[in-house]
Design a protein around this nucleic acid. Structure first.
Lengths: 303, 303
DNA sequence: CGTAAGTCATACTTGTCCGGTATGGCGCGG
DNA sequence: CCGCGCCATACCGGACAAGTATGACTTACG
């Protein structure tokens, strides 16, 4: 059976045009090298070298094989190196489940940090709901997911990436738009646009809960799928909306964002979800980056 | 050191997801296979499989390596096969030196026959003079050359591919154009266009010699580089020319080709030149095709 | 719950074969 | 003609691949 050893020896002899010199270069003695070449020729079924007084010279078959042998040898080195890098999470693919307002700030910042550290890892983002993310994690279709207000699952761990304050989106025509800061209680009686309408517990439930905590029943005029639609409705004068601060990266004409002055401020999480027993080295490296991100941004605790 | 054996075993285990079954497929027992996999993992420096109760599963590093391993293994099989084919002259490149009138008939017929037999051999044609062909043969820039009237060289062998009769190219206005056949003696006093002017002995010398043998000194009006130019001059009324029969594949308006009626006819060779001690299997195969060509066309003898 | 059946890992033996040393054969050049 | 390069052959020792036997462990099932 032909082994890489044969090809390696063959390539050395072909380069040196001389078996003795090749043996020296390979740090073996000449007779075993001669034998290996003979074996290779036996396997091929044809001479690969023409033996002369000066040394050896490639035959047509030898020339053909030399081209392929060098390719095989370098491909093998490459394969080993790539396997090693894959083992250390420096190569491969990170499938990420993302969600609506996450794309405005936190998610890109974290992923960018990861991309800079591991440029050879391909990052694929898939927009999906919380339930879809958990299911996709279980089916290994994604390695991590980003979301808010994550329930407990036995097989899924979560880690808070960022705590965010809330702001209120108000139409410019609304008197509240003139204020520097308002409290949640000021929203009593204001028509409220909520999102998303799917997947509980969700941000919509969270906002409704905050309102009740501050003593009023929210007057929901519209419930929509995502933040962008919500803000658009606010711009059209449907009412006001409460959004996480990072979503203010999305500007809409006619909408003013006013901060909430609760103290201590009501905080909302962006968390990262991953499978509890996923051994993937890429995940391990990602979590290291995530912890660094938390440290840089002074994030503590978990949801 | 990693060997192809490791990759082959690894690929089998990866395919079967089960060491025992893979061992069965490889016709070895299970323990050695386990050990080879362990060795490979040792070399890579990371586990390639996650062992479970049901069998084994590829890690990220294993997945990366599997893709490369299959590529390496198939490339190796391919390389062996190609080396074998190269040994039998079924793969590679045939560089051919050709000459002016040869391209009209004999050379393409022989090369086409060779191409049909060995479609994977690339054929490259290079137009060159006789001296250039001999020099190119010695420098291995061409494997065979085609030419006429080849002198003897100690290191170059030649073999006649085809014997050709001569015909006379006559302007339609010339009275000789009315004749069915003429003899060389009839050309006495006719202005003669000769070619080529370079590389002796050449066709030009040959024709002049034939004229003298038939009792007249040729009246050379023009000596040009190639047959096409010569026939063009004949069409313009410069005179008549003598060309090998195969060159009549080149039609020029205003030129009539009249056969020579000498008996026995004067014959001119197209020969194939090759290096006496060239061991190339492609040359060997080409010469076999050449002999078949000679047999088909009843060609005997040599120049 | 204990046994049977499946998995992979380990221990030990056997034989192959790689690599080393010593030597031979051969052509070339001083 | 002898010495110096080559490559090839002969032989030995040791490493290691493969085989047999067995163990450790988990699941499935009566």
């Amino acid at each position: 059976m032909i082994e890489l050893r044969h090809l390696k020896y063959f390539a050395a002899v072909a380069r040196e045009q001389n078996i003795g010199r090749a043996a020296l270069a390979l740090n073996i003695s000449q007779p075993p090298l001669t034998r290996q070449i003979q074996q290779l020729e036996e396997e091929i079924g044809a001479p690969l070298f023409i033996r002369s007084v000066k040394g050896v010279e490639l035959t047509a078959a030898g020339q053909a094989l030399y081209a392929d042998a060098t390719a095989i040898l370098s491909l093998t080195d490459l394969a080993i190196e790539r396997a090693r890098r894959a083992a250390h999470g420096q190569l491969g693919r990170l499938d990420v489940g993302i969600f609506g307002t996450g794309v405005f700030d936190v998610v890109p910042r974290v992923l960018l940090k990861f991309r800079n550290a591991f440029p050879d890892v391909e990052i694929a983002m898939h927009t999906m709901t919380k339930e879809q993310q958990v299911e996709a994690l279980r089916q290994r279709r994604i390695t991590i997911g980003f979301n808010r207000l994550v329930s407990k699952y036995p097989d899924v761990k979560s880690r808070v990436v960022m705590w965010e304050r809330l702001v209120v989106g108000v139409p410019r025509s609304n008197p509240l738009a003139e204020r520097d800061a308002i409290s949640i209680a000021d929203l009593a009686g204001q028509p409220l646009v909520l999102f998303p309408s799917t997947g509980h517990p969700n941000f919509s439930d969270f906002v409704a809960h905050q309102c009740r905590e501050h003593g009023f029943i929210p007057q929901v005029v519209q419930e929509v799928g995502d933040a962008v639609t919500g803000v658009a409705l606010v711009a059209s004068g449907f009412g006001v909306c409460i959004i996480p601060e990072s979503a203010t990266h999305f500007k809409a004409s006619g909408v003013v964002y006013v901060r909430l002055k609760e103290s201590p401020p009501t905080m909302l999480d962006v968390s990262c979800l991953y499978l509890r027993d996923d051994p993937s080295p890429i995940l391990r490296e990602f979590l290291r980056i995530l912890e660094a991100f938390r440290a840089e941004n002074g994030v503590t605790g978990d949801a």
